[in-house]
Design a protein around this nucleic acid. Structure first.
Lengths: 368, 368
DNA sequence: ATAGCCTACTGAATCGATTAAGTAAAACGA
DNA sequence: TCGTTTTACTTAATCGATTCAGTAGGCTAT
């Protein structure tokens, strides 16, 4: 499929050189008219602009300028999966919002780079991205995408899953996943829950849905997932509950539908758990839905706690007890860190954002 | 602030020419190794890739390739306002999801282009965008951004607000705003409501919040806003209610907070409206909130109908009666239309997507 | 009057690739 | 064996700008 942007547009695009010829000056002068107006007389500048208007010249070609200047004028946001999934994930959207704010501040464009194209995991998009640096979001440890980013030798900021091994040159931003998760589980344990089920999202690339035994849990490749599971674990073990007795369901995707599947399986276990810990609000929403379908009231028959505190959590029915993290702030911080790197600053020490348990109405003491 | 992507990264980036020198072949051969593997022996290809690895060459520079090939490998999505607002608007996010799907299908990147940078309305971002075409979303009629897009002489698809005058070269996608709005208002009128208030979003750029009289209404610069207002009008007039008696509140921004402000003003009018028509679900959510704060039950004391049918509408409390439109489909269509244009196809006739009233629980017959 | 300085330009190299056209050697066909 | 393809490269022009190092002419200062 030949992609030819010139087709279908009336006149050909004019170039700087043609404008120069039209006015009767050198290309350098036209360039100066756009980039350093102080370098030429007001009069010639007018003439250049006038000729540009006549010829339909919209200003220096961004690609050519980018090549010459050695910068693209945009930052890339690399998302682990297909872009359309990113937009369906409220936490990712909030994160993008923050990054876009930072890009805007710096006058840079924002290029969204899919980590996966129509299902295929392919670093080609990383190699083809005309950007000055990357914000890498939600990557599995050791993912080949990270290798592709490193190979580009551009400044990069790793968010949420900074695999230690590659991180030398890269800035890092994360949140206190473990602390937040521990607080969530401790809250349930503190209410008296002892039979708790965990709704996790994918532990490693190419997940299959289902209960994940210790072997599968050992494979966990997403750093923040690992940390959250550790947080849950330390909380339940702190109360003398054996981790092996806590069922963990792995959802292949982070959407409510999968959360519902997880809940159906976990709540089918005998004796039935009195509480569910979901690793994201999206999954928690689905779990609530499934519980309702099974005739269980939340929080009467079942307590549910989420993670992320997306705006919907406050408005859901019942309002969701969850772990708050500031996604917009995280994106903003990541973006600003990257912009600072573009300005020549050295990578800073990893930034860790706080998390905080927000108790709403989806949790209560177990019945009886 | 000098943006220099080379700083802070260990080794300098290698170029194709250096790889060629390392292997002892011409640059053309290295280029072929990446772009037309059939043009050289397996053996030299290996050697090239090996040398590339040694030198840390990540493949042809996207900017240089873009210049030479005459295409940027990305499409631009132009949003009327600051990007961070776009991410806060669920309808826009769904639209982006659709566009991103189309971009993905075509192997193109997605560059988000702000129509406004830190509050300033500036077409500079349009001129600086290294893209092969634009999807223009939610623009006011006659906005200078559209002029800037046209000046770039790139294929463009105008979504939702296709100002007739500039549209010659541009493809167009919209939804049946008027029909949807009419259906919404007819639904209320059909339930017996005669005192109806309208919660609109901005009528023209640089809006001030407040009741908008006929003069202000005449200025409406957003095509879809105009069409929706016309739809509301034709429905109420059809039942013999004078449009002049219907208060219209203009919200300066499309967020629930503003919807709440609008509701507070409209519900302060004596006699109090028995129903509110909101031009978006975001505004409707805020209006419901405000009504509740005023001690009015929805739909008992007040009926509210929205527009957009964002996913939250089905889950809100009460579930919102609203006008459904398929935002993802709209984005997908717009994106595919643009991709087709890139492939050399001529602009098609404007596409119009259907809207449909979805009756949920926020509307009922007026009391008494 | 002349050195020195501005102002307003121009010339030419360069950014990092792609690709059409050309060429030398090897393989092939009869 | 000799002409013809084929294979595997190379040469060189080109994409559209930016920018450094001039330079010509006018102006100022002494």
């Amino acid at each position: 499929m030949g992609v030819n942007p010139a087709e279908g547009v009336r006149r050909r695009r004019a170039t700087l050189k043609e404008v120069a010829a039209e006015v009767g000056v050198s290309p350098a002068t036209v360039s100066n008219a756009y980039n350093r107006p102080d370098q030429l007389s007001e009069e010639s500048r007018e003439k250049v602009m006038e000729a540009a208007r006549r010829l339909g010249y919209a200003g220096p070609d961004p690609t050519a300028r980018g090549l010459r200047r050695g910068r693209a004028g945009a930052i890339g946001v690399l998302y682990a999966d297909r872009l359309s999934y990113a937009f369906a994930d409220p936490a990712a959207v909030l994160f993008f919002e923050g990054v876009s704010r930072a890009a805007e501040e710096a006058g840079l464009g924002l290029l969204l780079v899919p980590g996966s194209i129509s299902g295929r995991h392919d670093p080609e998009a990383v190699r083809a991205a005309a950007v000055d640096g990357f914000v890498v979001y939600c990557m599995a440890e050791g993912d080949q995408m990270i290798g592709a980013v490193r190979d580009r030798r551009l400044p990069a900021v790793l968010v949420d899953d900074p695999p230690e091994v590659f991180a030398e040159d890269m800035s890092r931003v994360g949140v206190d996943d473990e602390g937040g998760a521990r607080a969530a589980a401790e809250h349930l344990v503190g209410l008296g829950h002892r039979r708790i089920g965990i709704v996790s999202y994918e532990l490693a690339p190419q997940p299959v849905g289902g209960l994940a035994g210790p072997d599968r849990q050992a494979e966990v490749a997403f750093r923040s997932t690992r940390l959250r599971l550790e947080g849950y674990r330390s909380a339940v073990e702190g109360m003398g509950v054996a981790w092996e007795s806590v069922p963990v369901y792995e959802c292949p995707e982070n959407d409510p539908e999968e959360g519902a599947n997880a809940a159906r399986v976990l709540l089918g276990i005998d004796p039935r758990p009195t509480a569910l810990v979901a690793i994201s609000d999206q999954l928690a929403f689905g779990a609530i839905e499934a519980a309702r379908e099974m005739g269980l009231s939340v929080p009467g028959d079942l307590s549910i706690v989420g993670f992320d505190d997306v705006p919907e959590a406050a408005r859901s029915n019942p309002p969701l007890t969850t772990v708050h993290q500031d996604h917009v702030e995280k994106g903003l911080l990541a973006g600003r860190l990257l912009v600072a790197r573009l300005g020549g600053e050295e990578p800073e020490t990893p930034k860790m954002l706080r998390t905080r348990l927000v108790v709403r109405d989806s949790t209560a003491a177990p019945r009886g």
